[in-house]
Design a protein around this nucleic acid. Structure first.
Length: 580
DNA sequence: CGTCTTTGACCAGCGC
DNA sequence: GCGCTGGTCAAAGACG
């Protein structure tokens, strides 16, 4: 994932270039401006200099198709070509100058004035260009850093979970966070020691991604690794979940006895139950999209809630033990609560892996939290307010303005991500219905974590390591970092929203820029951005693929991803009243 | 006709 | 031991 952004960014630029070329006949200045901005002004400047040095007075036809070729010749003579740029048509200053000069030479004073105006205009454009270029660089830097941080955290996660499959904790790893930051991680799960389970998963994926490019492979691996973020948890894949008390007629393998040493090894684990990951999100849709395929196998009325609870099972693999429950919040029926349990034992589709990646990472972080500081965890467990205050530090951050509540009363270790308070920002978050990033509601007691089939915005993950200690005092520098985190959230969310990284990147950048108050107004930057832009509704029909026309549905995209149109009609809204 | 949803029944855990 | 509740099964029906 580390390298992919680079590649895609490049691709993206290329696309932009094509667009510019196609439309340049209608407005050479602004369009070139855009292209050049993406490529940096170096070449532009050099050409300006070169032009002045040559002193050539040539008439350049902006509207001529071969103008690009001509410039190409110029480049061959002195101009430096941008490697791989492929943007021969991107040339602003030089042509502008020559054009102006030519005009001045061939006409009278009147035209000289016009030429001056042109120069001034060119200067203005140039200034604007540089501004944009600078901003572009700045954003790129931010993106790179965020990506790097993400990678580092993910790697740490792998280390934590893989080095200690039987004891979820390793303070050192978490504390070493800073020391790892400088690394330009490639999120290659293979690079880290793997448990048999993890390896198995990775290998399984390897076959499925064999055809993909190395970069893509790396991303996938990372995603997968994250998807099975916690080996100690993943190891339970086969025996996972609730089936401890049930036979797994479909999953085939009956759950191993829980009295295995693994259980005994961790007193923190709750016997007979796995941790769960719960997501609260506003959505009119019956189900939020997580990129996976689900099959409903039951529905029941739950105590204290007039809305029925639906039970789903992952059907992406025959033996996938992952299950989830979907239920509307009793207090606010617009809030959909989705609870996941278990670990996927199969490769996830891009739409799901990306999400699973970040989400699982966060989950693992959470789950390994107690390792970082049991005391801290205990404190969190015991003091809801402390936790709330902790998360409150994010209030100033766009997507982190959530509140956290911890509850030790839940029957199972549960991580609750509250996405109901995030604003439906233009950047969009976990698309397909998840309108906002998380809040974290943690049950540190969680000893085993479920493989979250969706993503937890990185901010949370990044935040977690500091959770316990931070409960006392938030590092000052952290606040600044949070800014980056929010950006990262946006980026990750965009990725989650759309597997097409190029699009996601564009969307993220657009989002960031928009956030800066200077939205360059490029809706075109997000071709499929409907997923990303306005979270929720925007996904209607815009998702990856043809989202079945699900009436109101923020989660329509999910259905598309899941390939099960019927999801759109199933329901939590089916107010059946069966008690049982 | 195959797939998926619906829904009544069944089972297990837990509290009283 | 009994009842409640959560969770799952599986037959029946719906849908494409």
């Amino acid at each position: 994932m580390e390298t992919k952004p680079e590649r895609h960014r490049h691709d993206h630029v290329h696309e932009e270039g094509g667009e510019d070329a196609a439309t340049m006949a209608h407005g050479a200045l602004s369009l070139h401006h855009r292209g050049a901005a993406l490529f940096g002004h170096q070449r532009h400047d050099e050409e300006l200099v070169a032009a002045g040095r040559r002193g050539e007075i040539r008439e350049v036809d902006f509207f001529s198709r071969d103008s690009g070729a001509r410039r190409q010749q110029d480049d061959g003579r002195g101009g430096r070509r941008v490697p791989g740029g492929g943007r021969d048509d991107v040339n602003i200053g030089l042509d502008l100058l020559t054009t102006a000069t030519a005009a001045a030479a061939s006409a009278g004073d009147e035209e000289v004035t016009a030429a001056k105006n042109h120069k001034m205009e060119a200067s203005a454009v140039e200034a604007e260009l540089r501004r944009v270029v600078d901003e572009n660089r700045r954003l790129r830097g931010i993106l790179e850093e965020l990506t790097r941080n993400y990678g580092t955290l993910y790697q740490q996660l792998l280390q934590v979970t893989q080095h200690h499959p039987h004891q979820h904790h390793h303070p050192d790893l978490m504390n070493n966070r800073s020391s790892l930051l400088p690394h330009h991680t490639h999120l290659n799960a293979m690079g880290a020691p793997t448990t048999s389970t993890t390896r198995q998963l990775l290998e399984a994926r390897a076959s499925s991604t064999a055809q993909t490019q190395p970069d893509a492979g790396a991303e996938d691996e990372a995603s997968d690794g994250a998807g099975e973020a916690s080996p100690s948890l993943s190891n339970n894949a086969g025996n996972n979940d609730s089936d401890g008390k049930r036979k797994m007629s479909q999953d085939g393998a009956p759950p191993p006895p829980r009295e295995n040493g693994e259980q005994a090894a961790s007193s923190a684990e709750l016997p007979g139950r796995k941790a769960r990951v719960s997501v609260r999100a506003r959505s009119e849709a019956p189900m939020i999209s997580d990129g996976c395929q689900w099959r409903k196998y039951g529905q029941k009325m739950a105590k204290g809630n007039p809305c029925p609870r639906a039970y789903y099972r992952c059907t992406m693999a025959v033996a996938c033990p992952v299950r989830k429950q979907v239920q509307r919040c009793a207090e606010d029926k617009s809030i959909l609560v989705t609870t996941y349990e278990g670990h996927h034992n199969h490769p996830l589709p891009p739409a799901a892996t990306t999400m699973a990646n970040t989400t699982s990472a966060a989950a693992a972080m959470l789950l390994s939290g107690p390792a970082t500081s049991r005391d801290g965890a205990a404190a969190l467990l015991g003091h809801h307010h402390t936790a709330a205050a902790l998360f409150h530090h994010h209030a100033s951050i766009p997507y982190a303005s959530t509140m956290a509540t911890l509850s030790a009363s839940a029957p199972f270790p549960t991580i609750t991500l509250d996405l109901t308070q995030a604003p439906a920002a233009g950047g969009g978050l976990l698309a397909h219905g998840l309108q906002r990033p998380p809040v974290g509601m943690i049950h540190p007691a969680a000893a085993a974590g479920p493989a979250m089939p969706f993503a937890v915005p990185p901010p949370l993950a990044m935040f977690l390591p500091q959770r316990a200690p931070a409960a006392a005092a938030m590092p000052a520098g952290l606040v600044a970092r949070q800014q980056q985190q929010s950006v990262m959230e946006t980026v990750t969310a965009a990725i989650a929203a759309d597997p097409n990284f190029t699009t996601a990147l564009a969307a993220a950048i657009s989002s960031v820029m928009a956030g800066g108050g200077a939205h360059q107004g490029q809706p075109a930057a997000t071709p499929r951005g409907s997923n990303i832009g306005v979270a929720g509704e925007a996904t209607i029909g815009g998702g990856e693929g043809a989202a079945p026309a699900a009436p109101t549905t923020t989660a329509a995209g999910a259905h598309a991803a899941s390939g099960s149109p019927r999801f759109a009609t199933q329901s939590c809204t089916t107010s059946t009243t069966r008690g049982n």
